[in-house]
């Protein structure tokens, strides 16, 4: 037992084992989902709308509790401790920080105040130093912080950067990122993913990344999972997934050996649904 725990510790910072999530006590959203996040690596979780990607993240971070949902079965082990059902503020204290979908910054507070809030759970640290560290990754934010207006007036990309920077302020071991590319222009998506990759390289933070933009996500990630209807249907290293014919077909656009007419693609998809 001790040995097994040791093994989980070294290999995976987070392992989600066969969880079921129910909303309002009746709606089953996740049906036996399992996934692992390797320490110091980026893991991507891909899937179509409504597959349950965001729900998975909320189950881990505990934010599910705020939406009348609960983990009704299975366990979520973070560094060997089961955190399923723990309240979100305690999960943050353990070192898991979720960057919410739609950025979730406090719009009527300034950029700096938002950053300071990120460090809410920390004690004994130098605020200015930590803010400088964030600006090291996001020089754009440094420029914008000088004027000191409400964060709601920042551009979409800047708000996304602020949300990620605020996560850094908490000095988490694991960041859960919910669609960082949402609503951003392709160039900005590239910039944001570049920064995510650098954060992972330089700070060694493990990242679980939920994305619709499969191409970007698999380029940045080390390992990937694909989910559908509340279950994982495929997993593999990012390279494997990128070269998988089905993934190419469904998520990356294109793929397949010969050019297909629209008619063929449709019937092909119907036949090859995973579930």
């Amino acid at each position: 037992m001790a040995q097994a725990a040791q093994k989980t510790n070294t290999d995976y910072i987070l392992s989600v084992n066969n969880i079921e999530v129910v909303y309002s006590e009746v709606i089953l959203v996740l049906r036996g989902l399992s996934l692992n996040v390797q320490r110091g690596k980026i893991t991507a979780l891909l899937g179509a709308n409504g597959a349950g990607k965001s729900t998975t993240l909320k189950a881990i971070s505990g934010l599910l509790n705020t939406e009348d949902g609960e983990v009704s079965r299975g366990s979520i082990n973070f560094e060997g401790q089961n955190i399923a059902g723990t309240s979100p503020d305690k999960v943050v204290r353990k070192g898991v920080f979720q960057v919410m979908e739609g950025r979730g910054i406090v719009q009527d507070m300034t950029l700096l105040e938002n950053l300071k809030l990120g460090a809410f759970t920390r004690k004994n640290f130098n605020m200015n130093e930590e803010i400088e560290k964030v600006f090291h990754f996001f020089p754009r934010l440094k420029e914008r912080s000088i004027t000191g207006g409400a964060a709601g007036y920042l551009s979409g990309g800047e708000q996304q950067m602020l949300a990620i920077g605020r996560a850094l302020m908490a000095k988490p071991k694991l960041i859960l990122m919910d669609e960082p590319s949402m609503g951003l222009s392709p160039l900005l998506v590239k910039e944001v993913f570049g920064i995510i990759k650098r954060m992972n390289d330089e700070l060694g933070i493990s990242i679980l990344l939920v994305e619709q933009n499969a191409t970007m996500a698999l380029n940045a990630a080390d390992f990937g999972y694909i989910m559908e209807n509340g279950k994982i249907v495929l997993d593999g290293t990012a390279e494997e997934l990128k070269n998988n014919e089905d993934v190419k077909e469904f998520y990356l656009g294109g793929g397949g050996d010969e050019r297909k007419s629209f008619k063929n693609i449709k019937s092909f998809k119907r036949r090859k649904r995973w579930l």
Binding site: P88, Q98, Q107, M109, L117, F120
Partner: peptide
């Protein structure tokens, strides 16, 4: 103050506040 900011964040949106580790 740290708690003052936390209260403002809670006033703005409780879920966001909780995601930052603030106990509502």
């Amino acid at each position: 103050s740290r708690f003052g900011l936390a209260m403002r964040a809670t006033a703005y949106n409780q879920q966001i506040a909780q995601s930052l580790g603030i106990s509502i």
